[in-house]
Every structure is written in structure tokens, then in C-alpha cells.
Design a protein around this nucleic acid. Sequence first.
RNA 1: GCGGGCGUAGCUCAAUGGUAGAGCGCCAGUCUUCCAAACUGGUUACGAGGGUUCGAUUCCCUUCGCCCGCUCCA
Length: 539
Amino acid sequence: MAEPKENVLMEKIVSLCKRRGFVFQSSEIYGGINGFWDYGPLGAELKRNVKETWWNTMIRQREDVAGLEATIIMSPKIWEASGHVSTFSDPMIDCKTCKGRFRADQTDEIPCPQKPSKCVNECHGEKTAPRAFNLMFQTYVGPVQDDSAVAYLRPETAQAIFAQFKNVMETSRQKVPFGIAQIGKAFRNEVTPRNYTFRSREFEQMELEFFIKPDEAIEAIHGSVATVPPTGHPGEPQPNWGWQAWHQYWVEERVRYYEGIGLSRQTLGFHIQTPEELAHYARATVDILYKFPFSKRDEKGELKGEELEGIAARSDFDLSQHARFSGKPMGVFDEELRGAWGKLPKEKQDDLWRRYYENRKKYLEKSGVETELASKQATEDANGLAKGQYIPHVIEPSAGVDRLILALIANAYTEETKTDDKGKSETTVVMKFHPRVAPIKVAVLPLLKNKPELVAKAREVYDLVRTQMNSFYDDAGSIGRRYARQDEAGTPYCVTIDFETLGEKPELLNTVTIRHRDDGKQERLPIGDLAAWLLARVR
RNA sequence: GCGGGCGUAGCUCAAUGGUAGAGCGCCAGUCUUCCAAACUGGUUACGAGGGUUCGAUUCCCUUCGCCCGCUCCA
């Protein structure tokens, strides 16, 4: 049976990644370890570049986002508040007869797949004992390994942002609306790591939690919540934006980011989560997908894509949870809201009070707080709103670094077939990375190796550019071979030092050729202009 | 976790119950005035463990890993 061409393509990409040093299997000399991958020299550069573009775009180029770098191991109470401890620890039972897997607490509700008239616990299938399925990696803090020392490697970076919300807001002197962003490792004991590095057990995330005022506060201050066109970028943030406008803003901002590093809109897909898919506290989630070779196809035969990033409107759930579990207030005081509230007509006050009360009560009841207490607490919260206090809502753009790296590699992978004068054709690989993320920005090459003047001049040029950007010097083999090697590494520019550089034609003294990776075209540039020319293109 | 397929050099592949070859790559050298030129030399492998056997890369078992399907995906 012939392999599907998608698999062939994916296998070629995997092979190139190893051959050129983008990705290696972790612990390969010991036979590998499932779900863990290392980045080789080119992959490490690529990943650094990607993280840097994100950090620049999300934090340094903005006035309203602050950075954070939290620990991987945190108080286990964080994961109780976030819900990860309970949702990760469902005991499961496998049926050896029908191969089904069921939650142990539901075997008297779920029908047997083979005999739907009976429940799973009544059918005759041979079943395993209940086994805990905890997708969090567990460890012990301190040398004594007892229950009190249990801790977890974080399954997402987001929770640290919520836990440090107050500290960051205070020290960064930010006011809502503002964001906190973080890049870091996360760990999930995935049942089935699959698709190369796409679903790994150790991976890196780039997450932003952008805190906004609840719509009731916006309405109190501005009279109404802004409506924005249902598609497209809503433009510069406005004070009267509610969660919908902010959500859409971040979806579009993130798409622009992907376009800026070489993933065009056509290579991306979008998935708007349905009400059934949404977590109960989430109001909307849009997933940005990349169409990988291994992605499934829809009814029309179009690639659907796999999730690179999810942009979720998570209401005030997360901060509320941490407020409840830690006993520390997570609300903010809003001078503008307090001032505006007093000027509202009574009916408007009552309306906003009631809506905020209902939302808070719904949250508390969903969280298992008994009705009477929930009503009391929600009343306090709504009274707080009237005094200018609220728990911020949050928009969460959460991206997987390693998934993005794989998308960039798959997107860059291009085969080109050249036929020489003798009719012999040869296929070469060109990695067409955007210059901003390309691992090597420029290769410096003497035209010939056995001419000391060329080599000396090339070393000089190399020393000039290497201080500015990641550069590579190569004098081994023919010039065409060296170009081809750089094509596989995805180097956008090759600088060649030839006899004209040395003054064979006096008017070209101290000029070099710049060869473009994607079309092979060359242009000539004075050495003095080289660094600036390159920097303008790789930043 | 279940079922199926697979595992030989850096990569792609070959052969064999008597310890393995090729192409490409890579390294060194000669040469080479712009897209994997040529020549010379060199480099590197039977995923791991156990069993059967006089002898195992080959047969059997276990294990690890990869691919496909199912399951899972907060």
C-alpha cells in the first residue's frame, strides 16, 4: 500500500530536521523517550527568534502589557484553584473485550458499546481495575516523599499570571485594561504524544492574560459598550470596548503576528468553539490553526488544520477562583467607575447591579457554593461594583511555541527541481523562512578557498556582520554547494567575496554580491552598507 | 492504554543463520572566477536486553522508539 503523500512530506521534513540539526529525538542514544524532543543548533536559533518576536510584539512594543517569568513548580493549591487537580485525576476503567475506556464513576450510566441495553458495569466484558489518569507531572518538594510534599510541574503557564496579578499590577503601575505576558515551559503527561513535536509532554507556551473591565463597568462609565464589526481588526483600543471587542482585537492582532513571521492567512485556519466545546466559564474561544501535512480534511477535502493558539474570553473565572481559594482579594478599584456610578439614574444603577449580581451568582453556584451563601456573596460583589470595585475579566491568547516552530518549518519546506545542461535533474530543498525568524541571517563565503586574499577578505566581512546578527562562514566545496547548504538551513542571504571585491574592476572595489535564497538573484553592495542593508531585512 | 506496521551508517535504501554493501551527506586534500563539478583519501550502522543455536543483524520473547487506526486531549 502506497503511503499517503502527506506522510511522505512529513517524513521528508522530519528527515531534514535531523540531517540539518533542527530537531533531534531526546535521549536518542538510549533509545529515545516518548513525547520529548530537543532542538539542534538551527532549531535553537529558530526558537529563540520566534520567542523574541513574540516578546517584542506583545510586550516591548506595547505600553499596556508587562512581562513575567514565574517558576515551573508552584504551590499545589494553584492547581486546585484552577481546576487541574480534579479534572486531571479521573480514575478510568478499560474494557479488554470491547477496548473501550470509561470513567470509573460513570460505569453505571454509560451503555456498553457492544450491548447498549446494558451499562458498562453490567456487561460481560473483562475490565481492568480503575486507574488514575493524571495528566499533570507529579514531583516532591524537599527530600521527604510523602503526601504533604507533592507538587506538580505546571501544565500551563497562565496560572502564575493570575497568582501574581496583584504584584505585577502594582509594580508595573498598570491599570485595567492591561496585560501580563509570559513565555515558559509547561508539562502534560499526554496519553498519546503524536505528530512529531506537535503534541509533546514537555513544551513551551507564550501566553498573554489581558485584563479588562466587566461590561457592566464599561456601561456605567461610557453609557454603552462599543459595538464593532463582526469581522476584521477593530482598530486601536477604545475605552468603551467590552469583552467582545477586545476578544476580536486580540484574534486579529495575533493573526497579524503570524503573517509578520511568514504564515500567510491562507496557511491558517480558524475554529470558533461551539457552545458545547466551551468551558462553562468561557464566553468565546477562537482557535488559530495551521494546516499541517498531517492535518485532517473536512467534507470538502480541505485541510482543517491543527491548533497553534487559542484566544479565549474567560470572564472573571480565573481571578475569582484564586480569590476564593487563597482568601486574598483579586478585585481592583476603579476611580472612574466610582465617579460615574453616582451620576447614573437609579434605574440604570439597578439594572447594572442586577446583571453583575446574576453573573457573580451564576459563577459561585457553578463552583459549588451553596445557594444562600452564593446570593450573599454576589450581593457583596454587586455592592462593590457600585463603589468602583470589580474582578477584572480576561482575554487569553495562548500559543504553543513548539507547535509554531513546527508550523514555520513545514511552511518553509520547499522542494526545487533543477535540470542542468546535460539534462540531469536534481531536487534540492529550500527552507523559505521569513528573514525575521531564520536561524542564520547571512552566510559569508569566499568565492574560492585556495586564494588567501579572498579568504582573508571574507573573514573580515564575516567579523563585521557577526557582531550584528547570527552569521555563518563557509569555505568548503564549490560555491554552488555552499549556496545549497544554506538553502537547506534557510539562510535568506549569502554574501560572496570575489575578485571584484578585491578590485579586479576598480569601480567594484570593496563591494560584495548578495545572493537571495528564494530566487537565486544577486545584487552588488558596498561592504560599508552591508550591515545596515541586512539589519533592515532581518528585524 | 488497545490493535496493526516498522526499526541496518548523519540521510535514503540493499544483502545475509557464518558479524554487512551502495548512493548521497560529512571531514581532509588537489582543483575550481557564482548555484550540490571532478579526482584522491577518510568517516560512520544491524535500537536495547534475554533466549534458541557451534554460531543470530537474520528465528523466538521482552523492552524502548517511530508510523497508522482507536482512545484521550483540562
